[in-house]
Amino acid sequence: MKNPADSTVLDLAFRQARTFNKFSDKPVSEATLREIVTLAQWGPTAMNSQPVRYVFVQSAEAKQRLAPTLSPGNLAKTLAAPVTVIVAADSRFYEHLPTQFPSFPGAHDMFAGNATAAAGTAGLNSHLQGAYFILAARLLGLDCGPMAGFDTAKLNAEFFPDGRYQAQFLINLGYGDASGNHPRGPRLGFEQIASLI
Rank of each mutant, 00 (worst) to 15 (best):
L39M: 14
W42C: 07
G43S: 14
G43Y: 08
T45C: 05
S49W: 03
S49Y: 04
S49L: 02
S49D: 01
Q50F: 07
P51G: 03
Y54V: 04
V55T: 13
F56P: 06
V57L: 06
Q58R: 15
A62C: 08
K63Q: 12
Q64R: 15
P68R: 11
P68M: 10
T69E: 03
L70S: 06
L70G: 03
S71F: 13
P72E: 10
P72D: 10
P72M: 03
G73Q: 07
K77R: 12
T78L: 01
L79M: 13
L79W: 03
A80T: 01
P82A: 01
I86M: 02
I86W: 08
A89V: 01
D90E: 05
D90P: 04
R92W: 11
R92K: 15
F93P: 00
E95T: 12
L97P: 02
L97R: 07
P98I: 06
Q100F: 15
Q100I: 02
Q100N: 13
P105C: 06
P105G: 07
A107T: 05
H108V: 09
M110N: 05
A112M: 07
T116S: 14
A118N: 03
A119W: 10
A119H: 12
G120Q: 13
A122F: 04
G123R: 10
N125M: 11
N125K: 07
H127T: 15
L128V: 11
Q129K: 05
G130Y: 15
G130D: 10
Y132E: 03
Y132K: 00
I134F: 10
I134Q: 09
L135M: 14
L135V: 15
L140H: 10
G141N: 09
G141R: 08
L142R: 06
P146N: 04
M147V: 03
A148E: 11
A148D: 07
G149S: 09
G149I: 00
F150R: 00
F150Q: 00
F150I: 01
D151Q: 10
D151H: 13
D151C: 09
A153W: 13
A153R: 14
A153N: 12
A153V: 14
K154V: 00
K154L: 09
L155V: 07
E158V: 05
E158C: 05
E158Q: 11
F159Y: 13
F160E: 02
P161M: 03
D162W: 06
G163K: 09
G163T: 08
R164M: 06
Y165A: 01
Q166A: 14
Q166M: 10
Q168W: 12
Q168V: 14
L170E: 04
I171D: 05
N172H: 08
G174T: 02
G176Y: 08
D177T: 06
S179D: 14
S179G: 11
G180E: 06
